[in-house]
């Protein structure tokens, strides 16, 4: 299947995005902010369709809107980012605006499916270069804040006392999540970013007990699921995103099974 240019492109793009998603998603799951990540992708949908409406590349609309959304969520952190209802309302509103923009830009309708569910087989060389650059920025940013991020995720009160700038780090993190979401949406679409950003990290956190081993496993699982999904799609002629979601879900439930459904010890008193 590698004799086709579109297949090698798909593997390259999915590879970059999977590693970035696996790494960023690991912290998203650790912090219990997966729903915020999901909301960012919907905000991105409005951004992408809005950008198309005014004649810009959808990817930059996606990046601009998600990053702005991430920063606003981070700044309002206490009030918004952990409130499911507020996030849910914003998420629907964003999707609604996306629909409105599509309504006024009917020629774009064929690309709406690609935005919602991804179209990795249509990725070209220019997009791969952009994804690689965005991916590098995302991982560098994550590396810069990783130490205080882990500390404040595990022990916010102590981190505050030790002088970690909580709001800055959480805002920077959501901006990084936003970048990862924009890349992820290129592969599996805005509706399915969970499949690479949450499935593999959640599975990794059931299996690994170390910080670095968990992070590495998360990235490796995301990569394996993305590549295997494309290969499966090539053989079966099913949509790529569907294949990746199946593998992601299978990976998560297998990890749950392997870790033995251990009861969660809440407290002994």
């Amino acid at each position: 299947m590698f004799q086709y240019d579109f297949m090698t492109n798909a593997f390259a793009a999915a590879g970059i995005v999977a590693v970035v998603s696996g790494c960023v998603g690991f912290f998203l799951v650790m912090r219990g902010q997966t729903f915020a990540g999901h909301a960012l992708s919907h905000i991105g949908f409005a951004g992408a369709t809005g950008a198309a409406l005014i004649g810009l590349a959808p990817l930059w609309g996606l990046v601009g809107f998600t990053v702005a959304g991430g920063i606003v969520m981070g700044l309002l952190s206490e009030r918004i980012s952990n409130r499911d209802v507020a996030i849910g309302v914003v998420l629907s509103l964003a999707l609604g605006f996306g629909l409105l923009f599509l309504h006024y830009y009917t020629a774009f309708a064929s690309q709406a499916t690609a935005l919602l569910f991804g179209n990795v087989l249509a990725v070209d060389h220019a997009t791969i270069a952009t994804l690689a650059a965005l991916g590098a920025v995302t991982l560098l940013g994550l590396g810069a804040i990783m130490r205080p991020l882990v500390f404040m995720s595990l022990q916010p009160e102590l981190a505050e006392a030790r002088g970690v700038p909580l709001r800055f780090v959480s805002t920077a993190f959501l901006a990084i999540v936003a970048l990862a979401v924009s890349q992820c949406a290129q592969i599996v679409g805005v509706l399915l970013v969970f499949t690479l950003m949450v499935g593999p990290p959640a599975a990794a956190q059931r299996l690994a007990t170390g910080l670095w081993s968990g992070l590495a496993l998360s990235a490796a699982l995301a990569l394996a699921e993305a590549w295997a999904g494309i290969a499966l799609a090539f053989q079966s002629d099913w949509p790529v995103s569907f294949c990746i979601t199946v593998l992601s879900a299978a990976g998560y439930f297998a990890a749950l099974g392997l870790s033995g459904f251990r009861p969660r010890v809440v407290a002994t008193n």
């Binding site: 219990g32 590396g143 990783m146 130490r147 882990v150 404040m152 595990l154 970690v164 910080l211 968990g214």
Partner: peptide
Amino acid sequence: IPDLRIRGIDFIGASLDGHRWGLP
């Protein structure tokens, strides 16, 4: 405290110099 399978040693390790930038 989040329901994580992270080990005790990594939990405490994250707090040592946890205010500094970069990789743990």
